[in-house]
C-alpha cells in the first residue's frame, strides 16, 4: 500500500491523523525552523516527545519538518531542532538547506533524512547528488512536475519519492519563491510563512469582501462567493487587457484520481498538505485518502473525492500532474 503522509499542526491534530488512518504524520517545532510558522501552531519539545510516543504505540511514524533556510549567525536554532527531533524519537527529519543536510549527516547520521519540497529538487541529477552526498533516503518532489516526469525521475534514482496529493497548492518552484517578501518582508524560505496572517486584513466594503496583504488588495469577492486567502500567486490582477487570476486560480490540489498513475510512476508516499488546518480537516481528509490508498492497493475503483468544501476557493485541480496550465 502507498504510504500516507499526513499533516499535524498540533498534538490534537496528530492524534486525529493517526486515528483516521495516517501511516505517517509530519509536524514542526513552534519557531522559524519550519515552513508553517503560524500563530498558535506547532509543537514544543515536550509535545513532540509525547506525540512520537503516541504515534509509535499506534504503529505510525512521525517526521519533523525543519525545512526553512538557516539565517547566517543563527544556525544554532536549526541545529538544535535536528538534535531535539532525534532525541524525541522522530523517524526522520525533512530538510531543505544544504548546510543543514550536511550538519545532520555529520552529527546525527542515524537520523533518517528526507529532502523537503523546499529544496525544489526536480531532476535525477539533483536528487542523486542529495542522496550520495548527504544520505537522503526520500525526496518530496516539487508540485511542478507531470506524472510522466515523475516516472522518468524514479527510473533514474534509488531513493524514495513522495508527492503532494491534496491541499494548498504552491504553484511556484518552492524554496525559490520570494513573492510573499515583496508584499510583507517575510517568506516561507526564511521565516516559515507565506503571506503571513500578521499582514492580512479582510474588510467588508460596498457589499464586497476585500482581502489585503501588506496593504495591497489581492482579491475583491462579491457577497456569498468563496473567500480565498490573499496569496500573491493566486491574486486577481490586471495585465494588459486581461483582469483575472493571472498566475493561478485560488484552488487547491486534489490528485485522488491520479493515485493509480502515481503508483505506476514508482511513487512511495502520498502527502497531504495542511499543518495550518484544524483537526476536523485532518480527520476528514486523512480518512478519505486512507480509503483511496486501500482501494488502490486492492485493485478496486477509487472512491470519488468529496473534499471540495474543505478547499480554498471550494474548488480543486490536479495541478501540474496533468499539465493543464494556461
Amino acid at each position: 500500500m502507498m504510504e500516507l503522509v499526513c499533516p499535524a499542526g498540533t498534538p490534537a491534530a496528530l492524534r486525529a491523523a493517526v486515528k483516521a488512518g495516517a501511516h505517517t504524520v509530519y509536524c514542526g517545532f513552534a519557531d522559524e525552523t519550519n515552513a508553517r510558522n503560524f500563530p498558535g501552531l506547532n509543537f514544543s519539545r515536550e509535545d513532540l516527545a509525547e506525540a512520537v510516543q503516541f504515534a509509535h504505540v499506534h504503529g505510525a511514524k512521525v517526521l519533523v519538518a525543519i525545512n526553512t533556510f538557516p539565517r547566517a549567525g543563527a544556525e544554532a536554532l536549526w541545529h538544535a531542532a535536528v538534535r531535539d527531533a532525534e532525541q524525541a524519537g522522530a523517524d526522520a527529519v525533512i530538510l531543505a538547506d544544504l548546510g543543514l543536510l550536511d550538519y545532520a549527516a555529520e552529527h546525527h547520521p542515524a537520523l533518517r533524512r528526507h529532502l523537503s519540497v523546499q529544496a525544489a529538487a526536480a531532476n535525477p541529477d539533483a536528487i542523486n547528488f542529495y542522496a550520495e552526498t548527504f544520505g537522503v533516503r526520500r525526496v518530496v518532489l516539487p508540485r511542478v512536475l507531470t506524472v510522466a516526469e515523475i516516472a522518468a525521475i524514479n527510473s533514474e534514482i534509488d531513493v524514495e519519492t513522495e508527492v503532494f496529493v491534496f491541499g494548498g497548492l504552491c504553484v511556484m518552484a518552492e524554496g525559490r519563491c520570494s513573492l510573499s517578501s515583496y508584499a510583507t518582508g517575510k517568506s516561507p524560505n526564511m521565516n516559515g510563512v507565506c503571506s503571513p496572517a500578521s499582514h492580512v486584513v479582510y474588510a467588508e466594503e460596498g457589499g464586497e469582501l476585500a482581502a489585503r496583504l501588506g496593504g495591497y488588495t489581492i482579491h475583491r469577492r462579491p457577497k456569498d462567493a468563496p473567500a480565498p486567502y490573499p496569496t500573491l500567486c493566486k491574486g486577481c490582477f490586471t495585465s494588459g487587457a486581461q483582469t483575472g487570476h493571472i498566475f493561478e486560480d485560488p484552488v487547491s490540489l486534489d490528485a485522488t484520481e491520479l493515485i493509480p498513475q502515481l503508483a505506476k510512476a514508482g511513487v512511495t508516499a502520498l502527502k497531504i498538505e495542511g499543518r495550518q488546518r484544524s483537526r476536523a480537516y485532518v480527520a476528514q481528509v486523512v480518512r478519505a485518502f486512507r480509503g483511496a490508498v486501500e482501494a488502490q492497493a486492492a485493485g478496486q475503483p477509487l472512491p470519488k473525492s468529496a473534499l471540495a468544501k474543505l478547499t480554498e476557493g471550494q474548488a480543486a485541480t490536479t495541478g501540474a500532474y496533468a499539465k493543464t496550465w494556461r
Binding site: P226, A227, P228, Q276, S278, L310, Q314
Partner: peptide, 8 residues
C-alpha cells in the same frame, strides 16, 4: 474546520 467556514 475554521478555514473551510471562512472560505465558504
Amino acid at each position: 474546520d475554521g478555514d473551510a467556514l471562512f472560505f465558504s
